[in-house]
Every structure is written in C-alpha cells, then in structure tokens.
Simulated assay, not measured.
Amino acid sequence: MLLPAKAEVARHLERYRAWERLLLAAPADHTVRGNFENTGYTLCVLMGKRCAREAADAAEHYLRAGSSPARARRAQGRGPSRTVGQCP
C-alpha cells in the first residue's frame, strides 16, 4: 500500500485545522465553509477515509505513530475501520 508523504499529510492537516478554526469563528461565511470542505476532502483522499473528521484523526495518528494508519489502529486494538457513509 502506498502511503502519503508525512510532510504532505502534516501540511494538509494544518490547513484543515486552520480553516476549521476560521469556520468556528465565522460560521456564516460561505467562502470559509467552501475552503474548509475542500481541505477536508483533500485530507480524506490522502488518508483513504470517507469523512473529514476520521481523516483528520487518521492523519494525526499517522504522524504520531510513524507507521500506516491501519497499523496504528491494529496496534491500539481498534481493528479495521468501518466503511460507513458518514462519521458517527
């Protein structure tokens, strides 16, 4: 399995968190919301997740663990991730 470069994951996770903070500060701003959703989508693609929150969590674990997201979940006893349409 190909894994994304850690520098790319870190860069996109940082952007996602920055837009998240801006969205919390200005929830009615459509430009901010669009940028937040775009960065979330990019993170989903990078991490192979269907939900931005799951992708952000997987990115954080990937950067902390130094291994693949699937290996990090197995090491924590979580097993494989669910493939559902939306975050719980």
Rank of each mutant, 00 (worst) to 15 (best):
K6P: 06
L63R: 10
R33P: 00
G77P: 05
R21A: 15
L43D: 10
Q86D: 02
D29N: 15
Q76F: 06
A56P: 04
Y41E: 09
A7F: 09
K49I: 03
R50W: 15
Y41F: 11
A56C: 07
A28T: 08
N35P: 04
L13W: 02
A18R: 03
A70I: 06
L23I: 00
A52N: 05
A7G: 06
A58G: 06
Y16D: 05
T31N: 10
Y41M: 08
E14R: 12
C51Y: 03
A7M: 07
V84Y: 02
A7N: 11
A10V: 00
E54H: 14
A18G: 01
R33D: 06
T42H: 12
F36I: 11
K49G: 00
R11K: 04
E60Q: 13
G77E: 04
P69A: 07
R17I: 10
E37G: 00
V84Q: 03
C51A: 12
E37P: 00
N35W: 10
R82M: 05
R64V: 01
A55F: 03
E8M: 12
G85K: 08
S81Q: 08
T42S: 10
L2W: 09
N38H: 14
G34W: 14
E20R: 13
A55M: 04
A55C: 05
P69W: 03
P4F: 02
A58K: 03
A56E: 05
A7R: 12
R74K: 13
Y16L: 05
F36R: 14
D29H: 08
D57M: 08
A52I: 04
S67F: 07
R15G: 05
T31E: 12
P80V: 11
G34E: 15
R53W: 08
A52R: 10
A75T: 05
L22N: 06
F36P: 10
A18I: 01
N38M: 13
L2H: 11
L63W: 07
A25R: 14
W19I: 01
C87A: 07
A72L: 04
A26Y: 06
G34A: 15
T39N: 11
R82D: 05
E54D: 15
R15D: 11
R50K: 15
L13Y: 04
R78E: 09
A10Y: 08
A59R: 00
V9T: 05
